[in-house]
Amino acid sequence: MSQHTLGEFEELVLLMVASQHDDAYGVSILAGLEKDLGKSLNISAVHVALKRMEDKGYVKSRFGGITEDRGGRRKKFYMVTALGKKMLDVQFELRNAIYKRIPKITFG
């Protein structure tokens, strides 16, 4: 676990990549996050996280076709890898397990 780290924002990006299965690229991830989080983000932040996770082996990428919208540039699609998926599972389990230990208390 120690060599596999996942930051908070990275986790969100990774979740988004997994949820948009096979259709996740920079702008779509940005749009999804902005919608779910309800605040505006900068595309560069998404790119930084994607590149880091690609280096760590949590996501892999492929180029798509050329689109008019993008000034002739191709899209780069991201997919979650097995390792990435496992990281998400581990994170989820961990949080869930701890969450379950919270006593049933109602707050005011």
Binding site: G26, I43, G71, R74
Partner: peptide, 30 residues
């Protein structure tokens, strides 16, 4: 460059529809 420029242009175009001036500034900042 392929990916970054593409994404930037796409975001720019989306922003441009709402406010061209803001889109320019945001693009430069990005």
């Amino acid at each position: 460059i392929e990916e970054i420029e593409g994404d930037l242009v796409e975001v720019f175009k989306k922003d441009y529809a709402t406010s061209p001036r803001k889109a320019h500034a945001k693009f430069a900042l990005s």
